[in-house]
Each structure stands twice: as structure tokens, then as C-alpha cells.
Design a protein around this nucleic acid. Structure first.
Lengths: 210, 210
DNA sequence: ATGAAAACAGACTATTTGGTCTGCATTGAG
DNA sequence: CTCAATGCAGACCAAATAGTCTGTTTTCAT
């Protein structure tokens, strides 16, 4: 693939991303994409064999992005703190900063879009989506287990419960954020969850982060 | 409207409900509805002037259902207990029973579908959706305020924070429930939230409900 | 019973949709 | 520079889509 070819492909992919997040997958026609991206039908079908392939590439792109974000935040947290509780807290704070980026306020979660439109997609795409969500949960489970191994909680609770709760909260907050245009909903919910953790593990509330 | 007319209208509305929840609004064609409902195009457009009107009627139907559910559960809880904390707990338990109905496991929240597809809808429909979500939150805020007025929490927390948290959790859990086919995700998350409340308000954990 | 209004059936239409195909332009390795 | 591979433009197509219209059947108050 030539330099310009790759560039053009990225451009189409980026435009599609925005449109799909804005109008949903079924609600976004290929002509919509062509219009907004300013490219021809020939260009589109040169880079993507079909709309289904676009769906696959889109979800792969997001999966890649998110894994990278997770890894970066996790690495930073683990480099800064030894205690898994502190690591987790710092990780969540990092997420809050990331999701609150005022440059491009998040309009929702692409996996939620794909989940509610899953009838549109083939088994492969559905697999990637649930795989990513499972992976997120799994990462949290491991980390919470580390925390539980060191800090006795004030009530009986499993690592899985806590992991599924934070993932649910984030997903739900993104729905509400979009539903009534409150761009800080997700970060606020994450912060509240951290307060819950502080209470659960009997830690003093930390100074409020940025 | 004749008896059979109303009946037929309900039938179309019910079928549309299922299809939209299954495939999204943009992903559901009128022909899909006609096929599944076994009615003719003439019948459909006799009852609904357009697809947009169907969208309006659908969201109105859901709003009506949910308000009724909320009122019923709230009334029962308030009739059983005097303490707002106990009322809230019973309300949430009632919700868990409702959402866990094994007859028709919930495939998600229609408002989330509408939220992520909001570009498809007119201002009126978008208004109803955010109105319902706001109303839910408002009801919870009032109830949490009552609780906070009586029971001192173990950490500083506002009624709004708690209200938005439970709504987020439910919305998010419904996404996860659908994403990986775990039909009990929502009820479990609600239960975990109740445990959090028990910890927050320093109440003994109640015997696990059904 | 009857007649007008409501309920429906389904052919038809204009537009949009995802996708193909042919031919021209650009790129970059040799 | 050359030329084959890549990148791209846009006319074209068949199917699907939302919606219309005309005519027939059903309903129900009188």
C-alpha cells in the first residue's frame, strides 16, 4: 500500500468513525461517508470490500486504540505505585482525564453502538465486541483481586463484582452523557466509584484530582 | 377507532417494539415489520402516518410502561416500610425481580437504543427520551434525599450522585447483559449497588432476596 | 338491514442503498 | 525514464426503502 493510499484509507476510516458514532451503523450510508470524506465510491470500495468489512475494520481500530490506552494508563500507574489499590485509583483517575478531554468530548461508546445494533453484524464483529468487553472486565478482575489479596474489604465482595460494576458504570454513564449532553457525566461516575472503593477498603479519601 | 382497529394497531406496535429492540430503529424496515406482523402496507400506514410517527408512538409506549412500573414498585415499597432507606431497598429488589423475569429476558433499554440512534429522530422524540431519563433520575434524587435526611452517610455524598449512579449502573448493565448474553447481569449489578448503600448507610446486609 | 366511516389489501413510485465495472491518473521500484 | 501496480473517479445497476393511491372489505351506530 502506497503512502497516499494508506493515508486515504485512514481518512475514510476516521470519517466513518465519526459518522457511525453520530448516526449509528445502519443509519450511516456509504454515500454519507463519501460526501463527508469527499472521496469517490471507487476510492471507498478500493479500500474496503464492503460495508461489512468497514464494520470489521472500525471495530478493530477501536479495539487497538482502547488496548493501547489501557496499557499506557496501567503502565504509568504501576510505575508510580506499588500498592495495587493506589495503582487502581491512579488508573481510574487517568481514565477520567482521558475521557474528559474537552477537545473532543466523548459521544458514547462504540461497543455500545455495536451491541445495540448487533443484528447488523456478522459473527466475527460480534465476537470482537464481546471479546473487548470481556477483556476489560478481565483486566479489572485481576487488579481487584490483587487489591483484595492485600486489603480486607469492609463487606464481602468479589473481584468480579467490582470489575463488572465499574465497566457497567462507565457504559451507563456514556449513555446518560449522550442522552442529556452532560459531557462530564462519565468522569463524575468514575470518581464516585473511586469514593465507593475508598469506603470499601477503608482508605482516606484522596485529594480531589484535576 | 373500532375494537379490531385498536387491536391491530397494538399488534403492529408490539411487533415493531420487538424488532427495534432486536435490530435498532434504522436497521428495522417497515417491510420487516409487515412481514413479522403479517399485515399489509395499507394497514401500517392506516395506523401510523410515517416511520417517524411509529418512533414517537413507540417511545411513548415505553415511557408509559416504565412510569407505571415505577409507580407500582414505589407504592408497594412505601406501603410496606416507613423508613425511606427500607423503601428504596425494597424498590430496588422489586426492580430486580421485574428485570429478571425469565419469561422474556430483557435485551436492553429502548432509551439507550434511541440515544445511540438519536440522529434518526426528531426533536420531539429526543425530548421524550431525555425527559424519561431525567425523570427517573429525579425520582431517585428525591428518595435519596429523604434517606440522607434521616441517615448520616459514612462519607460525603449527594443525592444526585447516588441517583445518577444507579441509573448509570442499570443502563450499563443492560449493555453488558446484551453484549455477552448474561441475562442476570442487571439484577446482579442492582444487588451490588444495594450492598454499597448498606455499607454507606451502615446498615446490616439484609438476607439475600429471591 | 343499511350506509358511512373505518380498516385493510396490495400494486405502484421515486429515491436511496450497497455494490460493480470500466477506464484514467499516480506512484514508486528498477 | 518506464511501466506495472496501485489508487481513484464516477456512470451504472439491481434490490430495498419509505411512502402513495385506488379500490375492497369490515365494522358498527342508527
Amino acid at each position: 500500500m502506497s503512502r497516499k493510499g494508506a493515508q486515504s484509507r485512514e481518512h475514510i476510516l476516521g470519517t466513518s468513525r465519526e459518522l457511525v458514532m453520530e448516526k449509528g451503523f445502519a443509519g450511516t450510508s456509504i454515500d454519507d461517508i463519501l460526501r463527508k470524506a469527499g472521496v469517490s465510491k471507487g476510492a471507498f470500495f478500493h479500500h474496503f470490500g464492503s460495508k461489512a468489512e468497514l464494520a470489521r475494520e472500525l471495530v478493530r481500530w477501536h479495539a487497538g486504540q482502547d488496548i493501547e490506552m489501557f496499557r499506557t494508563l496501567a503502565a504509568r500507574a504501576e510505575a508510580t505505585h506499588d500498592d495495587p489499590y493506589d495503582q487502581l485509583m491512579m488508573f481510574l483517575q487517568g481514565f477520567e482525564t482521558y475521557i474528559s478531554n474537552p477537545e473532543q468530548p466523548s459521544r458514547g461508546c462504540m461497543y455500545a453502538v455495536y451491541t445495540y445494533e448487533n443484528a447488523q453484524f456478522d459473527e466475527q464483529v460480534r465476537g470482537i465486541v464481546s471479546e473487548v468487553l470481556r477483556e476489560w472486565t478481565a483486566i479489572y478482575i485481576r487488579k481487584f483481586q490483587e487489591v483484595l489479596d492485600v486489603h480486607p474489604p469492609r463487606m464481602e465482595v468479589s473481584a468480579r463484582q467490582l470489575a463488572e460494576m465499574i465497566v457497567s458504570i462507565i457504559e451507563g454513564a456514556l449513555v446518560l452523557q449522550r442522552a442529556y449532553g452532560k459531557t462530564d457525566m462519565t468522569a463524575r461516575q468514575s470518581r464516585h466509584f473511586r469514593d465507593y472503593l475508598a469506603l470499601l477498603f477503608d482508605k482516606p479519601a484522596q485529594a480531589a484530582a484535576a
